[in-house]
């Protein structure tokens, strides 16, 4: 698809104002997909592959980490656009850093496997495991906040810090990419952040949590006191 051909698509997409003050996405997923159908076949395939890698909703409860790492490597090799690869790497780095901080908080040791995650920082993190900020406070200034949220157990605040970090970076990147495929990917990633934030539902979360607890307990469920059900 010629670079100039992205103008129609990008101007047809409504502006995304803000993340946390949004009550709903500016465009439904159905309408967004209709607009994205303006993309060429190759771009559509790339976008689907990127979304499949970055969003785990379709994976169910069991996530095969090795398969994910392999999927990330394959995707990056097929993209052929350094700006896009950098963008994906940055998003994956957030995941790796967050996973490392959670592991550290849980008292785990540095991963023994060299390629224990994806992105570009996994090896660096492994060698700087003892540092409270994994030696990455310059690149990811939100790490101390994440540590604080993990320490105090504030899950919502932690989620907000991570979403805000991703939002800020994507907003910054959207200034650099106005009319190319990267701009389309950035828009979809921002849309997904808003969709994720606006879809948070306390009642649904409670039902999901109860479901997970029941499944984890399995046969032992009946042995618990009735008040704990």
């Amino acid at each position: 698809m010629a670079e100039s051909a992205y103008y129609t698509l990008l101007t047809s997409l409504p502006h995304i104002d803000s993340l946390f003050s949004s009550k709903m996405t500016p465009i439904s997923r159905f309408q967004l997909d209709k607009r994205l159908s303006m993309l060429g076949t190759e771009d559509q395939q790339k976008l689907v592959a990127i979304e499949n890698l970055l969003h785990w909703d379709h994976m169910g409860d069991e996530v095969d980490e090795k398969a994910l790492i392999l999927q990330a490597d394959r995707l990056k090799a097929s993209l052929g656009n350094q700006h896009l690869i950098d963008l994906i790497n940055w998003r994956l780095d957030i995941r790796t850093v967050t996973a490392a901080l959670r592991r550290k908080h849980a008292g785990q040791q540095a991963p023994s496997e060299a390629k224990w995650s994806y992105g570009t920082r996994y090896e660096y993190i492994r060698t700087h495991w003892t540092s409270p900020t994994l030696g990455l406070s310059g690149a990811f200034p939100w790490i101390p906040k994440v540590n604080e949220c993990l320490r105090t157990g504030e899950c919502v605040a932690l989620e907000k810090v991570l979403l805000q970090a991703a939002w800020n970076h994507l907003t910054h990147m959207s200034m650099k990419h106005r009319n190319d495929f990267v701009a389309v990917v950035i828009y979809v990633m921002r849309w997904n952040l808003v969709a994720r934030w606006t879809a948070y539902d306390t009642e649904q979360a409670r039902v999901r949590f109860r479901d997970l607890v029941e499944r984890s307990l399995g046969a032992f469920k009946d042995q618990l006191p009735a008040s704990n059900h």
Partner: peptide, 17 residues
């Protein structure tokens, strides 16, 4: 031709929104 094409494409996109 290029300029009008680019601006025209943007106009078409805006009309959808």
């Amino acid at each position: 031709a290029i300029g009008c094409s680019v601006a025209g494409q943007a106009a078409c996109g805006a009309m959808l929104d």
